[in-house]
């Protein structure tokens, strides 16, 4: 899951970047409203974590932008203000959830999954397609009730495809979900991971749509 984090406090921002990455998220870290708007213009994000007090404006400005563009991005507002008025304002502006500082990283990760589930219309964390079942919390995959061992990238690709089983995801869409801007992507990295997934799950589970991308069988 690719997550945009907009937070100006360097210590919190650093903790979110490392903590969420270790919990399986692809984190893009930005510090100002301006940077965030520019990033949202060009890159799709599954979720955004927005701090309210930013040096050049309010996190709610970013939230309004996301809602006005009808982007498919779930939003969690991160705030040090716990007045009911402000929480209500945040939720009314279109936030899917809010969390008050200081907060627990695991709770934040769980809320990210929860808002994502809600946006996709799911009721449980498990995603099942055919004989394959994926648990994004423990990052485990089962086929015919047998545990499969997948690498981090392989898991991310599989989960991305299984979240939207009817959609065709292009290579660049998958790359955006897998890698942050700082990371080097090998030219055929996605193909390599798809190849490995097919080796483990059977060659027909992931289908190639010529000239478009990949989808599930």
């Amino acid at each position: 899951m690719r997550v945009l984090v907009v937070e100006d406090d360097p210590v919190i921002a650093d903790g979110l970047r490392i903590g969420l990455r270790e919990r399986g998220y692809v984190v893009e870290l930005l510090h100002t409203v301006e940077e965030a708007l520019a990033a949202l213009e060009t890159t799709p994000f599954d979720a955004a974590i927005l701090d309210l007090g930013l040096p050049d404006g309010d996190g709610l400005d970013v939230l309004r932008f996301i809602r006005s563009k009808a982007l498919d991005t779930s939003v969690i507002v991160l705030t040090a203000r716990d007045h009911t008025v402000q929480r209500i304002e945040g939720l009314d502006t279109g936030a899917d959830d809010y969390i008050v500082k200081p907060f627990d990283l695991d709770e934040l990760a769980a809320r990210l999954r929860a808002v994502r589930r809600r946006n996709l219309g799911l009721y449980e964390n498990f995603v099942t397609h055919g004989a394959v079942k994926v648990d994004p919390v423990s990052r485990q995959v089962w086929q015919e009730n047998e545990i499969m061992l997948l690498s981090r990238r392989e898991f991310d690709i599989l989960y991305a495809l299984m979240e939207r089983p009817s959609q065709v995801l292009s290579r660049s869409q998958l790359e955006e979900r897998l890698y942050s801007w700082q990371e080097d992507i090998g030219s055929n990295a996605v193909e390599v991971h798809i190849h490995n997934l097919r080796a483990k799950l059977g060659s027909t589970f992931i289908r190639t749509v010529r000239g478009v991308g990949y989808t599930l069988q």
Partner: peptide, 18 residues
């Protein structure tokens, strides 16, 4: 003051968890 105190505390909390 709550905002100013919560921010560094949140930083400490999250870094401790990391």
């Amino acid at each position: 003051a709550a905002h100013e105190l919560r921010t560094p505390l949140a930083g400490i909390r999250i870094q401790a968890q990391v």
